[in-house]
Amino acid sequence: MSPRREVPPGLTRGQLDGWIRRRTAYINRFHVAHWYPSCCVQARVDLTAADALRKRLNAEDDQPGSRVTINHMINKAAANALRNHILFNGKYTRRDSAMIYQRVHAANVVDTGGMATRIVIRDADRLSLRELAAETHRLVSARRLTLGEKLDRYSELQEKVRLVEAMFWFLPYSSRLERELSHERALDFLVENPSTVVITNPGTLGVQDCKAMLFFGNLLTCLRAMAIEEEAVLEDGQLRFRRVLPVGLDYDQRLCDAGPAVRLLNEIRRNLEVPEPYLVGPAVEDPRAPLAWPAGRGGEEG
């Protein structure tokens, strides 16, 4: 059995070269020819009800492997809301084409200290909140253990690719372009890539506000959660403090307008603010939602 290694912490100047090799897939993906006009909308979610639900669930079952956190609730709220806004659930297949998926596989950004990676919760909208929490705990632990090995393998591959490119520099431009536009294979090394939406939480690092693309890879939509804040509200003449979670949604402006994006964000907010009916169990489908998957139409299996 090969020894398992953790990813090294923050990189120093001497390690910059290795970093560049590891980042190559992302650098290509974000090359000026590939990135696209992104928009962001933001909202603030009152966490009073979500906090109460989390405490109740954790009091009922306090096993570390199934503890529910606000992170899990954000993921569940986003997956449930996507069920009624399926247009945001997809990925780019080429520079100017995208595929929309029927199943919601939510990718979660995991900060390992040296390199961010993602875990993927398959069919996140069909799981219950408790199941999603348990699955997340399991995948994060496994991912932290195996990532270092994967990064080393990816670095070695990059070296070989460079060598081949140096040897075959005379390849026709079109075939080189084609290769540059197909990053899925390269991205697979760093991220498990059946995901259809990415949810990231820089708020755990104290980030109060965040704009623009963070960890898109080849996905259409990114939901991000910021650091929880306390705010004072006046209710019935009484001053009280409540915890609020700023959330933002990055999306491709070419794909849809601000209206659908804001409606998706509002549904995520509703799921978190009224969690009992909308968050605990599988997604509640709204057949009247204009951007829901058409009833009776089959979808892809992937």
Binding site: F30, V109, G113, L205, V207
Partner: peptide, 22 residues
């Protein structure tokens, strides 16, 4: 006071930028 950091998303992920800010 607000402290903002612009960074190149191709070269750096948000976690690293947030740690630099911290």
């Amino acid at each position: 006071f607000g402290l903002a950091l612009d960074f190149d998303a191709a070269w750096c992920e948000a976690g690293r930028a947030a740690r630099f800010l911290a």
